[in-house]
């Protein structure tokens, strides 16, 4: 994966345009409840945190899927809705909570980077979410956070 969603929490104003864009891209309706990116509002800290899948290397979701419905396409973990049986094992296996079951469709959903043009980044008015080269420092910082919760088997070699 050459590019990734890099999130700068300090720039987020909580407008939720990302959620609108994501849900519109994937469902054809404006529906933050079905967005694959969610903005958390920590009101008393004066902080908004956009949150979505980091396309982690461990790919817990992909590993556990009993029917191979989640594939790795150039680093992007993509759910094939036709194959997904809705067993939800990926939703408990993903330690980041970024794979979610949708009762409405009986399938799981997660960020698929919109096939290379993420709608959330395009919609963000403040560049709090940008789709950019993974070498950018912000992404490493974000990954570092992700690794804090890393439950991966640790390779010693």
């Amino acid at each position: 994966m050459d590019k990734a969603l890099v999130i700068d929490v300090g720039k987020c104003t909580g407008c939720r345009q990302c959620e609108l864009a994501c849900s519109y891209e994937h469902t054809g309706t404006f529906n933050p409840a079905r967005s694959r990116i969610a903005v958390f509002d920590f009101h008393e800290k004066g902080r908004f945190v956009p949150y979505t899948c980091t396309q982690c290397d461990q790919a817990w979701c992909q590993q556990v899927c009993p029917v191979g419905a989640i594939t790795n396409e150039d680093g992007v973990k993509v759910v094939d809705a036709a194959t997904c049986v809705g067993c939800k094992v990926c939703t408990i296996a993903c330690p980041f909570g970024t794979v979610n079951y949708e009762p409405a469709t009986g399938k799981v959903i997660k960020c698929d980077l919109c096939g290379g043009e993420p709608a959330c980044a395009a919609a963000c008015p403040t560049e709090a979410i940008v789709f950019t080269d993974v070498s950018v420092q912000g992404f490493e910082k974000m990954r570092a956070w992700a690794e804090k919760t890393d439950t991966a088997p640790q390779a010693n070699a």
Partner: peptide
């Protein structure tokens, strides 16, 4: 159902 995997993250990450 929402973000249920976080429970694993919190527990196994011993956060």
């Amino acid at each position: 159902v929402n973000m249920i995997g976080c429970l694993r993250g919190l527990i196994q990450g011993r956060m």
